[in-house]
Each structure stands twice: as structure tokens, then as C-alpha cells.
Design a protein around this nucleic acid. Structure first.
Lengths: 341, 341
DNA sequence: AACTGGCACTCGTTACACGCGAGTGCCAGC
DNA sequence: GCTGGCACTCGCGTGTAACGAGTGCCAGTT
């Protein structure tokens, strides 16, 4: 049975009211708040249908209705009007992000900003190395058998690692290594780097071969192992706000939030098709402990490229239009910032 | 009225039982569990005195007794026997820390380890720059008007900042700048660095003066502003475990934990006199939101120096001997690790 | 055919009374 | 100075009852 116009309107009203009040919404209250020109009884009939179709449910008999995950899904896909951000909000975002001094700071500010604006848990993935390219590689001699390898990417990310050389090495040799590596790698995408590094070793002069091998192995580690590394988190305290209805099941949520792997999966898996943020509601994602939370995430990066993901986690009962708009806007601003840097 | 031997014993028993069971302890249960050779009535008399002196209190009439902050203080100062860590625990610590690949990783592992061992909220301050010295300074040209400044300290910490030069600058000049800065600063303690940087600018050749000034100002920022920078946090989920008795007041606690400034104050203020960890119970510290929280913290660093603080936050009702021992041990292991690196 | 008013019914929530039992304070006696 | 005994307090859990929000259904109206 296809849902007619009014039934959809009823569903929208239920979602909006429930999100606003956190209480099951009954037929009488609904017609009043939304000035519907029908009687409560009519709405009740509509509700019965919506319930049968699985869009809403009753927590108990004689309580109002509450949207199901399926209901939220329909709401997000077809019923919600996007709330444009107010100029004040836009200004706040801009002002807050402007002051950032380096990449670390950008990420930090972004995640706090997101948490503050949405009043939910915010997650920002550090720009991944994969999609960026090498701007510079530096070798710094620390002693005759040790150099510090510093990798600088065009997204402003810096990775450093200590390299133990196989034996005492002349400063001149280090200089030569630096030159070789830079010539081969600067400007190349990090994705292509591993193969290039390999051929560097193969082609190195015999005298340099072993040092080059040491440097290369560390470099490969840096490129491969760390490539999707870290994550920043903020707004954990907000969990306390929404956990009311998941009474006591707050512990597993907090635990899940401490697992970087989990967060990476939730935030990092971003479709390429840019555009609007992705919304996963309730158990549309794979983590049982976060069954009652929704994730709004999107990719960000300079221009149309994507170098990382960001987003928020909140209760399935969240203000989707507002959250989506905020996540979208913040991602855009951060992308612009990275493009400039 | 001075407390006699048995009254102290009673207090100890109350603290231990309460920590173990999380329930007010009554006189009967107490004599049984601790095989005291006196009757419950006697213990009750002792309890009355202890209560009068402010060491314990009754949540309500007809409930058992619970230690007050003052009681915990006495317990920590005079009654607790230090629990040495089991060999298994020591091995676990060592194994867990061994795998660390760089400084970031050391801090990360440490904080998780602490959280796991104590089942509380763990905080580790990144090694402060103040007490370390300059190992190397690198300038990397990114374009003709931009260089990346990389500072490497002997504790393995690396800071990088972008420098905008006042005008197009030759590669040779950058090389010269690099040479000058390194000659002046390598090996110097970061504490002395600011004055040295200043004189570098004063003495720079006219042609280099303005570029040197730009680099210097960024360098100063790095040295001064960021010097006590960051903090790592783990075990937030454990708050859910102990918040039971602070019913619902978990929100402010989580909020306080998000304030880096607060954590820095709690963990970073470490007396020089090394030795045992410092214990602050309940409102012995200054943060109202953490009134029901105790902090066990200590400094760590290679040898006898201190380059940062670490510790845990837990409910005032915590296992002090165990926690103190763990914090102490972890700090020692991390210090050793830094000494080796 | 769609909507409405009315009515009986369900059931969660709140309030109140009551009994149980843990724990206490006090006192007389050893 | 310690102990056994006893009366008292009070939080907690249970049971009962009244209340009211909300529903489902049905007969009547448009």
C-alpha cells in the first residue's frame, strides 16, 4: 500500500516532534502542534498503517508513537527539507577555523567545532597520505649511524621516523641519498610511491645500496602502515545527553568510541561521489554496540579530491537536516582551508 | 583524641571493604571479614569516634559507614601497604611498551596501558619541550617564499611549522639560515633557546635579517606557546563504571575530561622530588566538577629528570595502593624507554 | 469512500501503605 | 574496657489503587 501525501506528512510530524521533545507523540498533540485540518482519529488510522508498514512503533500500548530506523530512513531520504545554515553559524565556522596554525590545529579545531555545533560526538580523520603527494623528503643526520626521515606531503602533513643505518655513513652519502630520493619521489602521489621506492633500491649504486635499503624500508612502513592513521575525537561528553533513552547502555558506546578502528570504519568509508553526506541509521552500520546511534559522515579535501573523512555520531533520534547541513558545511570549509595551505 | 591502633585498623578495614564492595560497611560484616577478635558492638564504638573525627560517615541512618575524603587521606598516608606489582603485570607492561615505534606511539601505548591496568581514566602529558634540548633544526624549502621549519629534540619529539618568508629567497640563503640556526642552537636546552634566537636575529647579516626574523618568530612561537602542549587520554569508558554512586553527575566529569587545560593542571603539576606518585583526593584539587574524583599522578622522564606528567583519575573510592603502584611502575618503565631512545 | 465523535480498554506512571531487615546507639553487666 | 541485648531508625522492595494518556474500533456523517 503506497503511502499517500498525508501519511507522509504524519510521519514527518512524528519524527520532528519526537526529535524535539524526546517523547512518544500521540495523535492529539500531533494535530494541535501541526495545525492539521483533520481529527485525531484520522491521524490514528494513518498511524496504524504507518505502524503496519514498519515506519513507527509503540514503545508500549497506550503510549504515543516513535519512529523506527526505517521511519528515519524514509524521513531522511524523502521528507526532510534541508536547513541552510544561518549566516551567524557560517561566520562562526569561518572564524573558528581561520586561526589554525598548522595541520594538527586544523584537525583539532574542526573536530571541536563539529562537536559544538551538532552537540554530538564528532570525529575527524587526519588527512590520509594515500591521496596526497610528496612535497619534500628530508634526511637529517643525527649521528653517523642514524638519520631522521621526514616526509612532508602537499596536504601539510608531516611524518617522521628514525632510521638506523647499517653502518657509519658519510654526510656526503646522506646528501646523495636525499637527492636521489627527492628526485624520484617529489610530486608523485603517495599511492605510487612504494613501487618507486623499490626501484630506487634496485638502482642504487653498490656503495649506497645498503643504506638506501634501510631508509627505503622505513619509508615504506611510513607510507603503508601509517597511511590511514589517526583520528581526532571530541564531544564525548555529549553522549551523556542522549543516552537517557538507551539507559545504562552508555558503557558500550563509550567503549566503541575508544576503538580507533571502529571510528575509522565509520568515518573513513566515504564514497567518492562527494556531494551530500552519507547517513547511516541504527544498525545500517555493522557495530552492534552502536545499534542505537546514527552516523553522518562525509569526505573532505581540497577541491574535489578527498583526503579524509569527518562526521558525527548521535542517537538515531537526532536532528538529521541540521546535522547533515552542518557536516556538509564544515567539510567544505575545511576543504577550502586545505586548498589554500 | 588520638586514634588507637584498633581504630586505625577499623578505618583500614572500612576503606578496603568499601572499595571492594562499593557498599557501606556495617559493624557485623566488618568483624567477620577481618577476623577481628572483638565484638561488633566494640567496633561500633570505634566507628562512632571515627565518625566524630570526620574520617567516616553514614549515608543515612541505619546504613553502614563510608570513608570520607579525610578518611581516604589518612588511609593513603598511614594505613595502606604498598602492593608490589605481580611479575605478570611487570611483564605485561614491558611487553606492551616495547613495541613502540616512535614517540607518539610510546605516549599512546602508555596511556592505554595505564587505563587498562587501573581500569580508570588515564592521562599522559607529551614530553615537554622545556626540559629537553635541540638535536636538530631543519629548514625545508617548499616554494620561494615558504619554508617548513622542523624542530627535533633529544626526547624524540618533532615539531613542525610553516614559515612565510617576507620575500622570494634563494636556496643558498635558506642553506645559510639553516647553518646559522643549527650552529647556534644544537645541543642547547630549549629553555635557553629563546634568548639565543633573539641574538641570532640581531647578529644576522643585513641581507638575511628579514628572513631570519620571520623564521625566528615562528621558532619562538613553537618554543614558547607549544612547549607544554598536548595530552593523551584513554579509558573514558571507565567513567561509566564508577559513576554509579555519583548518580547522573557523569556529564560534568566527561566535560572536564575534554578540557585539556584542566587535565594539564591535574597531571602536569608534578613536584620535582620524584619518588612516589602524588595523590589528590576529592576536592583537594581545584576543580568542582571533579569533586568526587581522585588523581594519582607522577612525573616521568629519562633518568632522574622529568619531562612530563602522567597519571590516572578515578573515583575517590579507588584502590589506592594498587593504583599508586601501577602509576609508579609505568612511569619508571616509560622513563627507561626514553633514556634508551 | 473518507472522515469524525464517542467509548471502552490498555497499561505505564505515580502515590501511598506496609513489612522486612540491616544497622545503629545505648545501657547494664561482666 | 569489652560485650550481649534491645529498642529504634530508616531505606528498600512489594502490593494496591487511582489516574490519565493514548489507542482501536465502530457507528454515524459528509
Amino acid at each position: 500500500m503506497p503511502l499517500d501525501e498525508r501519511k507522509l506528512e504524519v510521519l514527518r510530524a512524528i519524527v520532528e516532534d519526537y526529535v524535539a521533545t524526546e517523547e512518544p507523540v500521540g495523535s492529539r498533540a500531533l494535530v494541535e502542534r501541526h495545525h492539521m485540518n483533520v481529527s485525531p482519529a484520522t491521524v490514528r488510522n494513518d498511524m496504524a498503517v504507518l505502524e503496519e508498514e514498519g515506519y513507527i512503533r509503540q514503545p508500549h500500548t497506550s503510549a504515543g508513537r516513535v519512529p523506527t530506523d526505517r521511519g528515519y530512513r524514509l524521513f531522511v531520504d524523502r521528507l526532510s527539507r534541508i536547513k541552510p545554515l544561518s549566516p551567524a553559524e557560517r561566520r562562526a565556522i569561518e572564524r573558528f577555523l581561520m586561526g589554525a596554525v598548522d595541520l594538527d590545529d586544523v584537525v583539532h579545531r574542526t573536530v571541536r567545532l563539529l562537536a559544538q555545533l551538532t552537540r554530538q560526538v564528532a570525529v575527524v580523520q587526519y588527512p590520509s597520505l594515500v591521496r596526497s603527494s610528496v612535497r619534500h623528503l628530508e634526511l637529517v643526520s643525527l649521528s653517523t649511524t642514524r638519520v631522521m626521515l621526514v616526509l612532508i606531503t602537499d596536504t601539510g602533513r608531516v611524518e617522521q621516523r628514525l632510521v638506523e643505518l647499517p653502518g657509519p655513513t658519510e654526510e656526503d652519502d646522506v646528501t646523495e641519498l636525499r637527492r636521489l630520493i627527492n628526485t624520484a619521489l617529489v610530486g608523485k602521489s603517495l599511492q605510487d610511491a612504494p613501487t618507486l621506492v623499490q626501484s630506487l633500491v634496485d638502482e642504487a649504486a653498490p656503495g649506497l645500496r645498503s643504506s638506501m635499503a634501510s631508509v627505503a624500508s622505513v619509508l615504506l612502513e611510513t607510507l603503508v602502515e601509517r597511511q590511514d592513521g589517526r583520528i581526532a575525537l571530541a564531544g564525548t561528553a555529549n553522549v551523556a545527553r542522549w543516552t537517557l533513552d538507551l539507559q545504562g547502555s552508555l558503557r558500550p558506546v563509550l567503549e566503541a568510541l575508544e576503538e580507533e578502528v571502529v571510528l575509522l570504519k565509520l568515518i573513513g568509508e566515504v564514497e567518492q561521489g562527494g556531494g551530500q553526506p552519507r547517513v547511516r541509521i541504527g544498525d545500517e552500520h555493522e557495530f552492534a554496540d552502536l545499534r542505537t546511534t546514527s552516523v553522518v559522515s562525509t569526505g573532505y579535501g581540497p577541491g574535489n579530491t578527498i583526503v579524509g573523512g569527518l562526521g558525527v555520531l548521535g542517537p538515531t533520534r537526532m536532528d538529521y537536516p541540521g546535522t547533515i547541513a552542518t557536516v556538509h558545511a564544515v567539510a567544505r570549509y575545511v576543504g577550502d582551508l586545505l586548498a589554500k595551505a
